[in-house]
Nucleic acid binder design. Sequence first.
DNA 1: ATCAGCATGTAAGGCGTTACATGATTCA
DNA 2: TGAATCATGTAACGCCTTACATGCTGAT
Lengths: 183, 183
Amino acid sequence: MAREKKIHVVILGLLNHEDLTGYDIKKRIDGAIRFFWNGSFGNIYPALKELEEDKLVKSSKASEGAREKIAYHITARGKKSLENWLKEERACNELRYETLLKLFFAGASDRETALRNIELFEEEIKQDLQILKMHCKALEPIKEEEDHLYYYLTALFGAETYEAYLKWCAKAKKMLEQQSTVI
Amino acid sequence: MAREKKIHVVILGLLNHEDLTGYDIKKRIDGAIRFFWNGSFGNIYPALKELEEDKLVKSSKASEGAREKIAYHITARGKKSLENWLKEERACNELRYETLLKLFFAGASDRETALRNIELFEEEIKQDLQILKMHCKALEPIKEEEDHLYYYLTALFGAETYEAYLKWCAKAKKMLEQQSTVI
DNA sequence: ATCAGCATGTAAGGCGTTACATGATTCA
DNA sequence: TGAATCATGTAACGCCTTACATGCTGAT
């Protein structure tokens, strides 16, 4: 496990379920995973090469006609590496919300600006919450497939925290509006 | 506004309130701000130099005896730059939770591992929640100072979302335990 | 025909972290 | 006197994003 880029485990996790091309991997990440992890072509393709060098995945030409297409398959070594990561008892959980930074320093401008920034945040969250709720609904019949439960729980995490965000937005707006009429 | 490192606005925001040394800035960030933004000496000190080159801050030797100490003061240009950033109608809000990644791919290992990872997350959140609640309490009398309200709202954001996390943890653990006895 | 989407990749740069290097001061 | 904390900084590296470069395919 010389290399420990986080994108490596994302790829291994996806390949553990099914064979995929780099392009497919990007699409999967842009689907449900994007709410808690990102990936770009610029790091997926190099990562796939590194994983193959380390024999954690194996490529096979799956070209259709003249269009080149490379599907990747996880190896036994790759599965072991994935499991080792899962069993590591530490996780790096990071949140970087520029909106909160702007709120923290809002004293450098006026109340309207602070309010506006909260409203912008609220709109974004509302939209994403709809998507997350759809994910939840789609995954709710969880009895059949093992993995479904896990997918459902991550979507539920998103939906519930986003709902908490919205409640906070309402409260924050109220407080800012009250204060601005009082002063 | 040629350079747009995010640490720049953090520094400007802090200096807008009071003059500080690089070391002080680090301490401030490690206090309340760390819940939504990070900073390290390795990027604070170079950033201060860049900000001074751009005339957004001004340094002054504030050494006590032989110990060197450089305090920074925000300039009018710096204040304007900070305000421009606050008024920009876009914000980059990013969440990267390795715990969720592990849960999403938990199918590659066993239920106990999935449960364990949730428990570890829960413990961490519980500890931080206590700190956030203390911040909230300390900031609650918000009438006097303008900035207090903003500090309070960011702490409240943290406290409320962390409480939502804990509720989700309880629910997720229950579901995982139920399923493992059924199967 | 042309445009969106499929498909793979490279190059440059941004932004950050960690570890290292140095030395003063304060307190037990 | 030794450890913790104050205080500033550099170097190396990690990891990711953005932009670029290329070409095929399917639908309108």
